[in-house]
Amino acid sequence: MNIKNDKKKYKFLEDVAIADIAFEAYGKTLTEMFENSALAIFELSADLKTVDAREKLEFALENEKIDNLLYDFLSEILFLKDSKYMVFKKSEVSIIENEKYQLKAVLEGDTINPQKQKLENDIKAVTMHMFEVKKEKTRWKATVVVDI
């Protein structure tokens, strides 16, 4: 078992999508992989050292397919960024598998303030290009390309 790789939360893939940004996110559990995918999005949006966890936002989603659930989850983060003017620092996710996958998430972050936060990419959308959720031997892996 590659322990070093298991500890890695996410990795940006260079030269996969020239005009966009691609990443892989990992987790020992499905929940952890979702949280790490969100973390990659947060990291792209702002320097996380400059973002405080001052406010919480909660939401719930459900879907029959796990990859569509991840797509909706990440898209919801982009929607909340623009509609609530927030940048985020961390997320807590729980997923229950009934007939459908049911997700509950809490995002922690702060109202956008360019004087306070070092802001980076204003991500436009999560794309379906190369989008994949995969269960490997010891971990879950997601491949995501975001439109910048």
């Binding site: 569509n68 797509y71 909706d72 898209s75 982009l78 929607f79 623009d82 436009k124 959308a125 999560v126 379906m128 439109d147």
Partner: peptide, 16 residues
């Protein structure tokens, strides 16, 4: 801006 991208995201799922 985000408006057009949200329409894209919404319809991507509808088209699936």
């Amino acid at each position: 801006r985000g408006f057009g991208h949200q329409i894209g995201t919404d319809y991507l799922r509808i088209f699936e």
